[in-house]
Amino acid sequence: MPDQTPAEAVSRPRDAALGSGIGRVLLLVYGVFALSASARALVQISTHFGEAPLAYLLSAVAGLVYIAATVGLARGGPRGRLLALVSCTIELIGVLVIGTLSIVDSVAFPDDTVWSRFGSGYGYIPLVLPFIGLWWIWRRA
């Protein structure tokens, strides 16, 4: 960006690096999940919301969390990093809580979300992803 002050320009590369290296790999994976989770929620909510409102709302929340994480990684900088950090943390809590609930209380989850059964429908990637994401964000602190 041309209108940066020198101080910002100096601090920028370290933070901008959030979206390079492994960060760029994460960008692709988070992008794919942002798209698949939110598209899934959109279809579920628009066609048969009444069948499992809780599961479908959680699908939508998961989609938003993945979108936020993708944007945070792509933007970089202190704000992007904070956004990525918060969304990866919510993602981790989400997959652990929803994963456990979907096994313990399957009646409340008649249909699947991305995070059901710890993301078994997605090769357990939703379970592993927040750990890699958080590790990467902390490493770039």
């Binding site: 390079s20 290296g21 760029r24 790999v25 960008l27 692709l28 994976v29």
Partner: peptide
């Protein structure tokens, strides 16, 4: 993305 990443991670992006 792989073109933007001229490291080993570029190949991982293509692999994924």
């Amino acid at each position: 993305l792989a073109k933007m990443e001229p490291t080993r991670w570029g190949n991982l992006i293509l692999g994924i």
